[in-house]
Design a protein around this nucleic acid. Structure first.
Ligand SMILES: [Mn+2]
Ligand SMILES: [Mn+2]
Ligand SMILES: [Zn+2]
Ligand SMILES: [Zn+2]
Lengths: 138, 138
DNA sequence: CAGTAATTGCACTTCCATTGCATTGATAAT
DNA sequence: ATTATCAATGCAATGGAAGTGCAATTACTG
């Protein structure tokens, strides 16, 4: 089991207090978060730093970005052993119309989507909207 | 075959010159358009008017909104006989990474997506990205 | 203990979406 | 036809999120 420090180093990211804090914050959330969410959690830190930290994580395939259709970019930690480097995010995302939270359904891979002749599919963004398990009352 | 005027009236939208023009503009495009696209096509008109016209069309299920992940909202006419009122947009959308255009693949319906127990799927947004037929050279 | 490079904070910018309000225009009632 | 009423339009302004330039700070290297 590698520590967060080791993980960051393995991706050539310098370990800083800020980065450790943000990583831990993301790790303990089970939903995707917006930059504002992070901002609210670290009021003392500057928004730009949080922004750039997340971007760094994204570039190094530690987090992935989620566009759930709300117009606000969300972020979530990549699962261990994901292949973000190779292809984008194969799992699907669920956005709850009730609590407005977005979760990664990492076990649910995106099915093969057929496109018409002449079209070449490179990647797919799939967001299911509805009522999440917490809101459906089981 | 009903005229545009008749269509608008059937949806309880007052017929105005602006609305007819914008409808025709959308009708002759085979790709989804941004508000800026419309703005460029009607330089004399105010941006707000164009915005509100499109929003009106959207409310009345004449156009549907597309979030293709570019961060800019796009719009396209609903197909005749679509069921926007009942459920959202069952067809998939394709965004070309080369020409940056987004098209409705109205013939390609979104497959049934399985979600975990406790989750209720209400609708699905599916955007495929890649190379479109025009850009793939056939 | 320098010297260097990366990180952080602050200020500012850009872009798109959205709203308030005054004006214009169309429709309906008298 | 005239007026009252309500919707549509135009203009100005706002808000929110993403992104950038630069200076100050902090961490690493020799
Ligand atoms: Mn995810
Ligand atoms: Mn469409
Ligand atoms: Zn929920
Ligand atoms: Zn193309």
């Amino acid at each position: 089991m590698q520590t967060i420090e080791e993980l960051l180093e393995s991706k050539n990211i310098r370990v800083t207090a800020m980065r450790l804090l943000i990583y831990k914050f993301l790790a303990e959330k089970d939903v995707a978060v917006t930059l504002s969410d992070i901002e609210n959690a670290f009021e003392k830190a500057d928004r730009t730093t949080l922004y750039r930290t997340v971007k760094t994580f994204e570039e190094k395939d530690i987090v992935h970005q989620i566009d759930d259709g709300t117009g606000i970019t969300k972020y979530a930690l990549c699962e261990k052993g994901c292949n973000c480097e190779i292809e984008t995010d194969l799992h699907l995302h669920f956005h709850c119309n009730n609590c407005k939270e977005t979760v990664c359904l990492t076990e649910h891979k995106i099915p093969q989507i057929k496109v018409p002749d002449g079209f070449v599919s490179e990647n797919v963004n799939l967001v299911v909207k509805g009522i999440c398990d917490k809101c459906s009352g089981q």
